[in-house]
Simulated assay, not measured.
Amino acid sequence: MESNLLVDTQKTLVAALDTRPVSIDVKDVTITFSSRGKDRFTAVKNIDLTIKQGEIVSIIGHSGCGKSTLMNSISGMVKPSSGEVIVNGKQVNGPGPDRGIVFQNYSLLPWMSVYKNVYEAVDAVMPRKSVKEKAELVEKNLTMVNLYQHKDKLPGQLSGGMKQRTAIARAFAINPSVLLLDEPFGALDALTKGSMHIELLKLWNLDNRNKTIVMVTHDIEEAIFLSDRVVVMNDGPEATIKEIVNIPLERPRNKKDIIHLPEYMEVHDRLLTLLTKSFSIEDEGVEFV
């Protein structure tokens, strides 16, 4: 049972979110896939989700629950079988420069330098800007993620964390209003992951917290530290939203401090409970959680 402190804090956060304009509106979205000779497969069903401008929202759930499918419907790479996705007041019919995407596998062009990987994205999205203006944007964003001194290196010469910083710099450089992160830090070690969390929040703060961020993750601690709300998915097929949990922690957040707060412990326990499956061996009378 939630404490009065947690409930009161959540109510305050919800009230604050209500004053912001809507950035993403997922309306009764169902996504079904079909292929020749195989049965139709419904990944997610009847999804309703409203995300306000400047929110950071994480989507968590077990593998195969449709987290990435739901995100891909926001990016425009997957079209809903029914329902609609509205971003910034316009129906999503395909990918667009208002939505930047960062994947777990970085998606960098291996034959191009760090600088060129970012420049090519800026050049494609902002063709009317001068060469000088594009160069300034690239340099600014590489500097913000501490990569300017490595700008001439190829992706193969970078560590995993540096590749991910390049991908994030590229996404921010095109200045999308919505940033979509599909398990961007899943392959990184704990120390690198922690530093990447800080870099992401720094960039978000530099944008005056106006950029809306949606992230798919399996990491409860990551979701709590970064997010305003966490969307917990039911298992698929035909996955739905199980519960949306508000994160009652003020910003800025310090990882060492917040883990000792009662609000943190309660929301962590809630998310863990929602994600936990129980299996029992009747013959032995043993339950594994």
Results as ranks from 00 to 15, higher is better:
residue 230 V to I: 15
residue 215 M to F: 02
residue 59 I to L: 14
residue 288 F to S: 06
residue 104 Q to F: 00
residue 239 A to G: 13
residue 247 I to S: 03
residue 163 K to S: 03
residue 221 E to A: 12
residue 83 G to Q: 04
residue 65 C to W: 00
residue 142 L to Q: 06
residue 266 E to G: 06
residue 120 E to C: 10
residue 65 C to R: 00
residue 269 D to V: 03
residue 282 E to H: 07
residue 289 V to H: 12
residue 179 L to C: 12
residue 288 F to I: 14
residue 104 Q to L: 00
residue 262 P to D: 09
residue 12 T to L: 13
residue 156 G to R: 05
residue 39 D to S: 15
residue 286 V to K: 13
residue 144 M to E: 12
residue 62 H to M: 11
residue 237 P to E: 05
residue 156 G to S: 07
residue 1 M to I: 08
residue 219 D to T: 01
residue 41 F to C: 09
residue 237 P to K: 05
residue 137 L to Q: 13
residue 130 S to K: 12
residue 242 K to H: 12
residue 49 L to T: 04
residue 114 V to F: 02
residue 80 P to N: 00
residue 224 I to T: 01
residue 245 V to L: 10
residue 140 K to L: 13
residue 92 V to S: 01
residue 147 L to S: 01
residue 218 H to M: 03
residue 62 H to W: 11
residue 231 V to W: 08
residue 189 D to C: 10
residue 48 D to Q: 13
residue 165 R to P: 02
residue 289 V to D: 06
residue 68 S to T: 14
residue 223 A to F: 00
residue 89 G to C: 08
residue 227 S to W: 01
residue 95 P to M: 09
residue 90 K to C: 07
residue 234 N to P: 03
residue 18 D to R: 14
residue 54 G to E: 04
residue 185 F to P: 09
residue 174 I to K: 12
residue 266 E to W: 05
residue 208 N to A: 11
residue 36 R to I: 12
residue 17 L to H: 14
residue 174 I to F: 10
residue 1 M to C: 04
residue 238 E to D: 15
residue 134 K to R: 15
residue 29 V to H: 02
residue 148 Y to N: 11
residue 139 E to G: 13
residue 288 F to Q: 08
residue 177 S to G: 13
residue 266 E to H: 05
residue 37 G to T: 12
residue 192 T to N: 07
residue 30 T to A: 09
residue 133 E to K: 10
residue 247 I to A: 03
residue 2 E to S: 11
residue 156 G to Y: 01
residue 260 H to V: 09
residue 160 G to Q: 07
residue 173 A to G: 11
residue 95 P to K: 05
residue 236 G to A: 04
residue 178 V to Q: 08
residue 190 A to D: 08
residue 286 V to A: 10
residue 13 L to Y: 14
residue 3 S to Y: 05
residue 45 K to T: 13
residue 24 I to Q: 06
residue 126 M to A: 10
residue 110 P to N: 00
residue 75 S to G: 14
residue 7 V to L: 10
residue 233 M to W: 05
residue 287 E to W: 06
residue 92 V to N: 00
residue 76 G to E: 00
residue 282 E to P: 07
residue 39 D to E: 15
residue 259 I to N: 03
residue 127 P to G: 07
residue 132 K to L: 14
residue 2 E to Y: 06
residue 78 V to T: 07
residue 41 F to N: 09
residue 281 I to E: 11
residue 239 A to C: 05
residue 151 K to L: 01
residue 217 T to R: 00
residue 81 S to M: 04
residue 160 G to C: 08
residue 182 D to N: 06
residue 103 F to C: 00
residue 4 N to V: 12
residue 41 F to L: 14
residue 91 Q to E: 13
residue 258 I to K: 04
residue 63 S to H: 02
residue 184 P to C: 05
residue 79 K to M: 00
residue 215 M to D: 01
residue 71 M to N: 04
residue 207 D to R: 11
residue 167 A to S: 13
residue 259 I to L: 03
residue 178 V to K: 06
residue 277 K to V: 10
residue 160 G to A: 09
residue 168 I to C: 06
residue 50 T to F: 02
residue 136 E to M: 12
residue 245 V to S: 07
residue 142 L to M: 04
residue 218 H to W: 00
residue 75 S to F: 01
residue 34 S to H: 10
residue 154 L to R: 12
residue 196 M to P: 02
residue 25 D to M: 04
residue 32 T to D: 01
residue 2 E to I: 06
residue 153 K to S: 11
